[in-house]
């Protein structure tokens, strides 16, 4: 927050991303979504097609982003990689939201020992670093995109549970909830039909911000080889495959998917923050 002096009156303003930045970010995320949906039609090459006569090519008119260590077109792989990267983050967040919102709402609704037990369970889950938690899940089950999504989803769930509990407690303290009770509405119906929908505006903004974090975390897992496996063109895996070239001074295959991840994460953060503000004002 900054306070600008205008004559005798000081005007307080909150720093926000300019509308132009917001729409730019919306455009970036839209582009990623379009790439994920239309990859088969818009990618110039088959993302798995190798060309040993064109290894580590510099960007050119034939290959806008150059080629990787197997001569595959990086642009085509980035476009095709949007699908597993975005779908993975969506699946992770859907799973984490289902678990987190359920725990958070029940804890806030029931309070007492139910709240205390759920708080301890989430504390235990919090105690493990997310990545370690996923490695444990993978050790128990098997490596693969599904396990990575579930493992990371379980690591994200306590964060969502805590947030949901906090906003649900605030919501339940509002007099309209008591008014509903007095009209003869039962607890479960009151919670599911009236209180939960009122949490969504606040929750959605938060989840959009978490989407970026989820995307980055999954990319990190794939980079470490715990999630997607070759020949997938998932962005984290692309960075991992491209790091061999960095030693030889060829940074494109690792840098380009890394930059794409960073840009999409920043874009979702900006959108999430703006969305939270807008929805909160409306609420």
């Amino acid at each position: 927050m900054t306070i600008e002096a205008h004559g005798p009156v000081a005007v307080a303003t909150t720093r926000k991303a300019a509308p132009g930045v917001f729409y730019l970010c919306l455009g970036i995320l839209g582009l990623a979504v379009v790439a994920a949906i239309l990859a088969d039609w818009i990618a110039p090459y088959d993302p798995s097609a190798t060309d040993f006569s064109a290894l580590y090519q510099q960007p050119s008119s034939a290959h806008w982003f150059g080629t990787d260590q197997l001569g595959r077109d990086i642009l085509s792989r980035v476009i095709h990689g949007a699908r597993p990267s975005l779908l993975g983050a969506i699946a992770l967040l859907t799973f984490a939201t289902a678990v987190g919102v359920l725990i958070g709402t029940v804890a806030a609704w029931k309070r007492g020992w139910v709240d205390a037990v759920l708080a301890r369970v989430t504390d235990v889950m919090f105690a493990f670093p997310g990545l370690l938690f996923v490695v444990l899940v993978i050790a128990v089950f098997d490596r693969g995109p599904g396990t990575a999504v579930i493992g990371m989803g379980l690591a994200f769930a306590p964060v969502i549970a805590k947030f949901t509990r906090a906003i649900a407690l605030e919501e339940m303290a509002r007099p309209y909830v008591d008014a509903y009770r007095l009209q003869g509405i039962g607890s479960v119906e009151l919670c599911v039909r009236y209180v939960l929908p009122n949490l969504f505006p606040t929750l959605i903004g938060y989840l959009v911000v978490l989407f970026g974090e989820g995307l980055m975390s999954l990319a990190a897992l794939n980079f470490l080889g715990f999630g997607a496996q070759p020949p997938s063109s998932e962005w984290g895996l692309m960075v991992q495959e491209g790091r061999g070239g960095v030693i030889q001074g060829i940074v494109g295959p690792a840098l380009i998917p890394g930059l794409v991840i960073a840009v999409v994460v920043v874009a979702t953060n900006v959108i999430g923050v703006r969305l939270s503000d807008k929805l909160a004002v409306k609420a």
Partner: peptide, 25 residues
């Protein structure tokens, strides 16, 4: 349900905070 509906007909309450006592949706 029946007990809740009967109690609702016995007594209702209007709250102090006019801004929080209605469902904003």
């Amino acid at each position: 349900r029946l007990a809740r509906l009967r109690r609702a007909k016995e007594v209702q309450m209007v709250f102090q905070d006019p801004y929080g006592s209605l469902d904003r949706r």
